[in-house]
């Protein structure tokens, strides 16, 4: 059964993106931050008829410290663990008031999505609440000073997974939150990256025009936490996709398509750009490379198993 309606796009591109800023300049993100790139673009597409919701995350702090605020649309914050549920409540209240055309969007970091906020997210997804949930994935708890999250990749240095003589960064692998969301059988799940803007804009627009629970996870590098040059934010996001460390796909009603076929370049280039991987031994790099190949193989199998032809 098709759970979604709509999803038609007019094909917004960088050239046709509106000039008006709904997420204004003057916010206090670190220079070169990936998250404001996502939010600026998303707000341009979503338009002024939007209510935004945030759990505790970097975006909450740099997007507004009361009474100042970078958003020109309603901006709400309640708690870390309940972003999806609060957004769903806002949507239902708006529906009761007859304002059914308002977009309700929750922005959250990877910690507020996959770790702390997960039960609320899972509940809202299972009930197919009519909200758009955008997770900007910077692979650690950056707001509180770079602590590891479920989304932190293997080998990465954080303040809670230090790199020393006994342990070399995080010893566990990145949690695949998009796949968990796919298992909730929601109308729309997609991954995007700031390194592939056309793809990202198309997915945000598609998600905006759908009904039901829509989940987007966007790869947004953090130069401060990843210990890298601020100018390389976009470049490193591109390399993540090219090396297979991050896969771009979308799932509409159970049909999965790959958006960009990974070139499966060696992961070395991607890792070398970042100070958080500086300590890696050759053995660890091999493990990461193996993980990337395995992930890619699994993704391709997923795409094949859930392709349009297999749909009944």
């Amino acid at each position: 059964m098709d759970r979604h309606q709509g999803g038609e796009t007019i094909g917004i591109t960088i050239k046709t993106l509106p000039e008006e800023e709904l997420f204004t300049s003057g916010h206090t993100a670190c220079g070169g931050c990936g998250a404001p790139i996502v939010v600026r673009a998303a707000m341009k597409i979503l338009g002024p008829n939007t209510v935004t919701y945030f759990p505790a995350c970097c975006l909450l702090v740099f997007g507004g410290t009361y009474p100042h605020n970078a958003f020109k649309v309603p901006y709400l914050h309640v708690l870390f663990e309940n972003s999806a549920i609060c957004a769903a409540g806002i949507k239902q209240a708006l529906n009761k008031q007859g304002k059914e055309d308002v977009n309700v969007v929750a922005f959250a970091g990877d910690g507020g999505t996959g770790d702390i906020g997960f039960q609320a997210l899972s509940g809202a997804a299972e009930r197919n609440e009519d909200i758009l949930y955008i997770c900007y994935d910077n692979e650690a708890y950056m707001n509180t000073g770079i602590q590891r999250s479920g989304s932190t990749p293997f080998g990465a240095w954080t303040t809670t997974t230090p790199a020393g003589t006994k342990i070399g960064g995080k010893e566990l692998f990145k949690k695949d939150i998009p796949k968990i969301m796919m298992a909730h059988n929601v109308p729309y799940v997609a991954t995007a990256s700031v390194g592939h803007p056309a793809d990202m804009l198309r997915k945000i627009e598609k998600a905006k025009n759908m009904k039901g629970f829509r989940y987007l996870q966007i790869f947004a590098p953090c130069p401060t936490g990843w210990r890298m040059d601020t100018a390389k934010t976009v470049e490193v996001a591109k390399k993540a996709v090219n090396s297979g460390m991050w896969t771009l796909f979308e799932m509409v009603d159970g049909v999965i398509t790959l958006s960009v076929k990974p070139k499966m370049e060696p992961v070395d280039d991607y890792l070398k750009m970042q100070g958080r991987f500086r300590h890696l031994t050759d053995e660890q790099i091999k493990i990461i490379q193996g993980w990337a190949y395995k992930k890619n193989e699994m993704d391709l199998k997923f795409v094949e198993a859930f392709s349009e032809d297999k749909k009944e």
Binding site: T24, S25, G26, H27, T28, P67, H68, N69, Y75
Partner: peptide
């Protein structure tokens, strides 16, 4: 200075 939505334009970074 400005307060409320969009008031960060006052904050010259």
């Amino acid at each position: 200075g400005l307060v409320g939505p969009g008031s960060f334009v006052d904050n010259k970074t």
